[in-house]
Design a protein around this nucleic acid. Structure first.
Ligand SMILES: [Mn+2]
Ligand SMILES: [Mn+2]
Ligand SMILES: [Mn+2]
Ligand SMILES: [Mn+2]
Lengths: 146, 146
DNA sequence: CGGAAAGTTTAGCATTGGCTAAACCTATTG
DNA sequence: CAATAGGTTTAGCCAATGCTAAACTTTCCG
């Protein structure tokens, strides 16, 4: 066998983390969209594509395109020129996102992170915390309160 | 003015978080690559593209393509068929990545997150924590030790 | 030294997620 | 009730990340 022999090694195991991250990223956008749509529905009674675009800081056309993907994924429903609705599946994901988001943001605040920073950081962190980590954060919050 | 009037509102402010996330994502890959390359150099004396690919759980061809981008960005250096080197800039980014990574992972462990989970979650979280949050984590660690 | 095995790069393709400009509806209002 | 202002979608473009299969180098061994 020519060339430096490289044992299979624990690289496969190590790569699991990166694979999880890539998976997280592909669901991240969907999570933020449905959570935001849920917020808009609760706040103003309906979610317009342009409101979503504005809150995300993204062009209108980008939202339209993403909606098609989310529709194919069974998370939202929309007729052309009408506002956006969440499917049951979509609501479930939105609720779960809110739950995680709340824990992470509350946790950062309890840790002493400034409000604005906690709001911003939690928006990114929420997508990369496993249930075990969420539990640890919740535990910390509970201890703090007591 | 036709149609429902929509006030400019605080949406612009709210969108800042999402814009930060999009920015984080575009630097995230570069950070993981250079940190990994630095680890390989320290561990085995050199970083081969195929080792990078294996650790990331990605195809060889993907690494080759990414290396071109990192080279254009002034982070790495490579001759065809040879191993990869970091530029000064690359080392700086790698060191900074390690620093953040260590704080986040250590913090999760101190919080009571299982080892394996801490390793995996920190790989994603590290890219979304601001300096203020890192400081809060470091503070927590220091308090724990005392 | 001269293959062939093994490692590396190229070619070509797909998807995601952005953007701008142009075309297209809808709804307000004169 | 029709014109039009203004919101929405299409069209077409681009960059980043992946992949597989084929081409190409290197390296080791007989
Ligand atoms: Mn969220
Ligand atoms: Mn988010
Ligand atoms: Mn890292
Ligand atoms: Mn990472």
């Amino acid at each position: 066998m020519p060339q430096r022999t490289r044992k299979p090694g624990p690289s496969k195991i190590r790569s699991a983390a990166f694979q999880r991250i890539r998976a997280d990223h592909s669901s991240e956008l969907a999570e933020d969209y449905v959570e935001l749509i849920a917020d808009l529905i609760d706040e103003k009674g309906e979610a317009r594509g342009s409101d979503v675009a504005m809150r995300l800081g993204v062009a209108n056309a980008t939202v339209v395109k993403t909606m098609k993907r989310l529709q194919d994924a069974g998370l939202v429903t929309q007729e052309p020129y009408r506002s956006i609705f969440l499917t049951g599946e979509g609501w479930k994901m939105a609720e779960d996102g809110r739950r995680k988001h709340k824990i992470v943001e509350g946790f950062l605040l309890a840790l002493g992170v400034p409000e604005e920073t906690a709001r911003i950081d939690s928006e990114g962190i929420e997508h990369h915390v496993s249930e075990a980590t969420l539990r640890a954060m919740a535990r910390f919050l509970a201890r703090k309160v007591m």
